[in-house]
Design a protein around this nucleic acid. Structure first.
Length: 431
RNA sequence: GUGGGCGUAGUGUAGCGGUUAACACGUCAGGUUGUGGCCCUGAAGAUCGAGGGUUCGACUCCCUCCGUCCACCCCA
C-alpha cells in the first residue's frame, strides 16, 4: 500500500475559491477600467525572468533580492526567478521591444501574481497579486500626479475611504549619497542607543532608519536631516510643482488628502525623487495598499537609454481585505437562467438536446443530476441559484410540453411547447 | 530570521483523567400519488495535527516536532 499523503497548499499561498471570485473579478475589472480611462494599455510579462534582471533592477542589497526571491536553476542551467515585483519586468519589456519608438510616455498596466519568500501574515502572502501602472518616458511631475490620481480613482471606485497618501521626495542619486552620509553622521552620534537591527542598517541602508519602528530610533529620527533639504534645483522644482498639482486634485477628489512624510523611503533601489504610499488609517499593522514612485535611473541600469519612469503597484489581496473591513462594496454572484429537471431516460435525452439549443440562445442552463428523484433535482436547482426550473418528465414528453417553474420570483408554473424557442421566450427576462 | 496565540468531521464550535467524542451549518437519502426554498426523519463523515512520555486509563496533563494564525522585520 502506498502511503497516503494529504497535500495542502504550500505555506503562504492560497486558493481563490468560487465564493470569492465575484469580488476578485469586480476588483480586477475596476482596475482595468480605471487604467483604461487614463489611456493605459495592458501588458503581461512572464511569471519568471532572468535572476539578473531583479539583482540589477531592484538592487542587490535590497531585502527583496537578499532574502525573498524564489530563484531556481532550470534544466538548461539558467538562473531564473519568479517575479517579485512588476516594474523591472515591464521596463525590460520596454527596452526589449523598442518602445522608445512609440509616442512617449508609454502608459502600461498589469494585473499579475508576484512571489516573495517571506513569513506569511495578515495581508502578506508568498504569492500575491498586484495591479500596477507604469508611465515610461516622461520626466514631468504631471505624470507623477497622474499615477497618483489613478490610484485615487481606483480606490474611490471601490468605495474605499479613510485612505491617506504619504509622499516624499528622496532626490536624485547624486544628492542622495551626501544625504545618506549626513544621516549616518546623525545616527552615529547615538549609535550606542540604537537597537541592534538598526545599528546593522546604519552602514548598509541609512535611509531605512527613518521608517524604523523602534521607539529609540524614532526619537532620533524626529530631528534627523530631511531629504527634502538636499534636493538639487531640478528635483526641488519637480517636487514643488508636484505639490501644486496634487493640491489641484482636491477639487475633483474632495476627500483626497496627502501628507508629506520625510520618513518615507522605499526598499527598492531604483526609486528617485517622488515616492508615495497609500495606506488605510487603521491602527496596528501598517499594511500599505499602494507603493510607488519615480524610477528615472532604472531603464539605464537595465541597459536601455536613459529614460524616466514612474509607477505604482497595489496589492489586490490587501485591497480586498480593506473592502471587506470597510464593507465598502457589495457584490452578488450572477444567477443562472435555468436548470433542466428531467426524469426518465427519454426526458433526459430530450433535456440534454434542449439545453444545448438554449445555450445557442445565450441562455445559461445546466442539467440537474441525471437519475435522481425529482425532489432531489429540484433541490439541486434551488441551490444552483437559478431563475427557472425547466421540468420535463414522461408526462411532458407525452404532451409535447415543458413545465417552466420560476424559482426566485413569485408566479405559477406553466406549460409551454417543448422546443427551444418557446422555452427561451418563457424564461428570458425581457420577453 | 525573532516572538506570541491556536490545532477536535468539509466549515464553525462544545467537551472532560474513564463519554457510543457532542452541537450547528453543509453533504446524501427520505417525508405516500413526479416539483425547490421553511420544517421533520434518517445516514455518511473525526486514526480528537504527529511522535514520545506521565497514568490502571489521555482528546483532556507534560515534552518535542509539524502546521496555522498574529506580530516584529520587510513590503503590496
Amino acid at each position: 500500500m502506498p502511503e497516503q499523503q494529504n497535500y495542502r497548499a504550500p505555506r503562504g499561498v492560497t486558493d481563490i475559491l468560487p465564493d470569492n471570485q465575484t469580488l476578485w473579478n469586480t476588483v480586477k475589472t475596476t482596475a482595468i477600467n480605471t487604467a483604461r480611462q487614463f489611456g493605459y494599455q495592458q501588458i503581461d510579462t512572464p511569471v519568471f525572468e532572468h535572476t539578473g534582471l531583479f539583482r540589477r533592477g531592484v538592487g542587490n542589497e535590497t531585502d527583496i533580492v537578499q532574502k525573498e526571491m524564489y530563484s531556481f536553476e532550470d534544466l538548461g542551467g539558467d538562473s531564473l526567478t519568479l517575479r517579485p515585483e512588476g516594474t523591472a519586468p515591464v521596463c525590460r519589456s520596454y527596452i526589449e521591444h523598442g518602445m522608445h519608438n512609440l509616442p512617449q510616455p508609454v502608459r502600461l498596466f498589469y494585473i499579475a501574481p508576484m512571489f516573495r519568500y517571506d513569513r506569511p501574515q495578515a495581508g502578506r502572502y508568498r504569492q500575491h497579486h498586484q495591479f500596477g501602472c507604469e508611465a515610461i518616458g516622461d520626466p514631468s511631475p504631471v505624470i507623477d500626479t497622474e499615477i497618483i490620481e489613478i490610484g485615487l480613482r481606483y480606490i474611490t471606485a471601490l468605495g474605499l475611504s479613510d485612505v491617506t497618501v504619504r509622499i516624499n521626495s528622496i532626490g536624485d542619486p547624486e544628492t542622495r549619497t551626501s544625504y545618506a552620509d549626513d544621516l549616518r553622521k546623525h545616527y552615529a552620534k547615538f549609535a550606542h542607543e540604537l537597537p541592534k537591527v538598526d545599528r546593522d542598517r546604519l552602514e548598509r541602508a541609512p535611509l531605512r532608519l527613518l521608517d524604523s519602528k523602534e521607539p529609540a530610533t524614532q526619537k532620533l529620527s524626529a530631528d534627523a536631516p530631511k531629504s527634502l533639504n538636499y534636493l538639487s534645483d531640478g528635483a526641488k522644482q519637480h517636487w514643488e510643482t508636484l505639490l501644486t498639482l496634487l493640491d489641484g486634485l482636491k477639487s475633483a477628489y474632495p476627500s483626497f488628502k496627502y501628507r508629506i512624510d520625510h520618513t518615507l523611503v522605499r526598499g527598492l533601489d531604483y526609486y528617485n525623487r517622488t515616492v508615495f504610499e497609500f495606506e488605510p488609517s487603521i491602527e496596528g499593522s501598517q499594511t500599505s495598499l499602494f507603493g510607488g514612485g519615480r524610477y528615472d535611473p532604472l531603464i539605464g541600469i537595465l541597459g536601455g537609454n536613459e529614460t524616466p519612469g514612474v509607477g505604482f503597484g497595489s496589492g489586490i489581496e490587501r485591497i480586498i481585505l480593506e473592502i471587506q473591513r470597510q464593507e465598502s462594496i457589495e457584490v452578488t454572484d450572477p444567477s443562472l437562467n435555468a436548470v433542466m429537471v428531467h426524469v426518465g431516460d427519454n426526458a433526459t435525452n430530450r433535456a440534454a438536446v434542449l439545453a444545448a439549443e438554449l445555450r445557442n440562445n445565450s441562455i445559461s442552463v445546466l442539467m440537474a443530476p441525471a437519475g435522481k428523484s425529482m425532489r432531489a433535482q429540484m433541490r439541486y436547482a434551488n441551490r444552483a441559484n437559478a431563475n427557472y426550473a425547466i421540468i420535463i418528465g414522461n408526462r411532458e414528453i407525452e404532451q409535447g410540453v415543458a413545465a417552466i417553474k420560476p424559482l426566485k420570483l413569485d408566479g405559477d408554473q406553466n406549460l409551454v411547447t417543448l422546443n427551444a424557442q418557446t422555452i427561451a421566450n418563457a424564461i428570458l427576462p425581457s420577453a
